[in-house]
Design a protein around this nucleic acid. Structure first.
Lengths: 141, 141
DNA sequence: ATTCGTGCAAACCGTTTGCAAGGGA
DNA sequence: TCCCTTGCAAACGGTTTGCACGAAT
């Protein structure tokens, strides 16, 4: 995502472009599905004067305006994802790591199935697949 | 689930059957994917003397021993599920409600797809599908 | 001038922890 | 007796809130 892209996204949501929001967004883009804690650490490394409350505030605003999304994890640690388009997630069993997983064929497969066999009393608007497992091989960082 | 079933489950996990554990388990079975708060409220209605810490303790133990599972939600409220077999979930968009959704055909569809088109550097051990949408029609309570 | 956004710090609240007492096996 | 389990209460930690100041329109 180019810098101008997310700035546009913020502006289109009716928000002002501020150094704080830029810093938060860049922390989101630099990390993979970061926790709030990670974002705070990341932001404050370069901008020690940005308040924690402000960062939470910005994250809330972004989520509310669909600029980013919350990611579900089992251990009640909130994570954030700057990608709002439909995609799936790979979860390391210990949930130390989450990666994006794009698979249009699979998405279509599920979509078709859901369309065919209607679920009674429930109207599906979106779906997310969580693949839980282990990352194998190369592991930097 | 019959009473004896979960008692057996608890015993087989190497735990003693205690009134506290029975109360927690029955609260789990009486409610659909309850939050800890809901469970506490439910348990204390009949057993006002059971401590909150004990309830959290029991829930943790149950999860650790795979007697129940944690359910992911986006708003960082932990929910619990006494069903440990593979199944999917229907999420109300506002996450006020979660229902179980069994669909073996869909499960198999996904399983087959995953088997066929291997994901590089990742070994899938389990998966969960979250269907987000709206419950329509009948709605008591 | 008015609205929006930020910094700061206190408050909040769900959850965890430590410890002493109770109760089965 | 020994170990598991509970009750209690204090502590913890991530998140939220209130408010006054500052910046943008």
């Amino acid at each position: 995502m180019k810098t101008s892209d997310y700035k546009k996204k913020i502006k289109e949501a009716g928000l002002r472009i501020t150094p704080q929001r830029i810093a938060v967004m860049e922390a989101l883009l630099r990390n993979s599905h970061p926790t709030a804690e990670k974002i705070i650490e990341n932001v404050q490394k370069e901008h020690p004067n940005i308040a924690i409350g402000t960062i939470y505030n910005i994250l809330d605003t972004f989520v509310r305006l669909n600029i980013i999304t919350r990611v579900n994890t089992e251990n009640s640690v909130t994570r954030f994802d700057p990608v709002t388009e439909r995609h799936h997630h790979l979860y390391a069993v210990d949930i130390k790591e989450i990666e994006d997983y794009y698979d249009d064929k699979l998405t279509k497969l599920i979509l078709d199935h859901l369309k065919k066999c209607n679920i009674p009393d429930f109207k599906v608007k979106d779906f997310k697949l969580q693949l839980i497992g282990e990352f194998i091989g190369k592991k930097e960082k």
